[in-house]
C-alpha cells in the first residue's frame, strides 16, 4: 500500500521530519538522522563566522542537499519582516528552494508562536511563491486561516518547543486535523516515542522533532525508536482502533470445549 506523505506535490516515504540542531557534532547529527529515516531536515539560517577556517566542514557537506530535502526555518525570528527576510536568503542560499518552515516567535522564554506575525509572514511568502509549512499554536481557527492563506502544511505545537512535555491538548489537534485539507504535522513538544505514536494515532500526517532525539541519552537509539513509533502510530491510525468499553462479556478464547 502506498502511504506516502505528500507535501506541495512531492512524496515522502517517511512521516518523521527532524531538526539538525543540538547534536554533539556533525557525525552524531548524520548518524541520528540516518537512524531516524527522515527525508526532510530542518536547518537554520545564520551569519557565517568571519575568520572561520575556510576548510572546516559545513552542515551541507555532512547532509548533502541531493540526499535530503532541506527545510530552512525562521527560528529566532520575532517579526514577520525578519522571517520573510530570512527565507528570501534561504531561497538564494539553496538555489531557488521553495519549501520552508515558517515560525515567528512571540516570547523568548516559552518560544510560543506569535500567530499575528505568523499570518502576516505567511501571506507575503505564499504570494512570493514559497511552499510554506507553518509552525503555529494549536488554535483551530488560526490553523484554518493559515490553510486558507495557502500554506502547504500546518504544524501546531504539541507542547512548547524543547519542553518534551508531550501532547497536552489532543482535542485541539483532533479538531485541527478534522478541519484541514492539507497535512497537519505536530511540531514541537514530543519527548519520547510514545508521544510520537499518539500524534500519529490522532491522525497527524507527520511529526517534526529535534530535541527529543538530540537530547536523549543515546540520540541514535532514540532516532530509531522515533522512526518505529511514527510507523506504528500511522499503521494504528489506518487500522482503526477497537471501541473502548469498561469491560467485555466477550472473552477472546472459546467458551465451548471446557474440561469442566
Amino acid at each position: 500500500m502506498n502511504d506516502d506523505l505528500v507535501i506541495a506535490g512531492k512524496s515522502y516515504a517517511s512521516r518523521l521530519l527532524v531538526g539538525t540542531g543540538k547534536y554533539q557534532d556533525f557525525q552524531q547529527t548524520r548518524a541520528a538522522i540516518d537512524a531516524s529515516g527522515a527525508e526532510i531536515v530542518t536547518v537554520a539560517i545564520r551569519r557565517t563566522n568571519i575568520g572561520q577556517d575556510a576548510n572546516s566542514p559545513s552542515l551541507l557537506d555532512v547532509l548533502p542537499p541531493s540526499k535530503y530535502t532541506y527545510l530552512p526555518n525562521t527560528a529566532g525570528c520575532y517579526s514577520a519582516e525578519d522571517a520573510v527576510r530570512t527565507l528570501r536568503l534561504a531561497r538564494e542560499l539553496l538555489d531557488d528552494h521553495r519549501l520552508v518552515k515558517l515560525e515567528v516567535l512571540g516570547d523568548p522564554n516559552t518560544l510560543y508562536p506569535n500567530v499575528i506575525e505568523t499570518i502576516a509572514a505567511a501571506k507575503t511568502l505564499v504570494k512570493e511563491g514559497f511552499d510554506v509549512m507553518v509552525y503555529t499554536s494549536d488554535d483551530p481557527i488560526i490553523a484554518k486561516q493559515l490553510e486558507d492563506i495557502g500554506c502547504v502544511a500546518v504544524m501546531p505545537l504539541a507542547s512548547l518547543i524543547g519542553s518534551g512535555m508531550g501532547i497536552l491538548n489532543p482535542w485541539n489537534l483532533q479538531i485541527i486535523i478534522e478541519n484541514a485539507h492539507i497535512p497537519v504535522l505536530v511540531d514541537a513538544g514530543v519527548g519520547c516515542a510514545s508521544d510520537a505514536a499518539i500524534a500519529m494515532e490522532l491522525g497527524c500526517a507527520g511529526v517534526l522533532m529535534n530535541t527529543a532525539i538530540a537530547a536523549a541519552r543515546d540520540p541514535i537509539l532514540m532516532a530509531g525508536a522515533m522512526r518505529k513509533a511514527i510507523e506504528a502510530g500511522r499503521e494504528s491510525y489506518l487500522a482503526g482502533r477497537m471501541a473502548k468499553k469498561l469491560y467485555s462479556a466477550s472473552p477472546s478464547s472459546p467458551t465451548q470445549g471446557m474440561i469442566a
Binding site: 536547518v43 551569519r47 557565517t48 527560528a75 530535541t211
Partner: peptide
Amino acid sequence: LEIVGAVGGG
C-alpha cells in the same frame, strides 16, 4: 552586508 549559511537547527 549580511553573509549567511545553513547551520543545524530545529
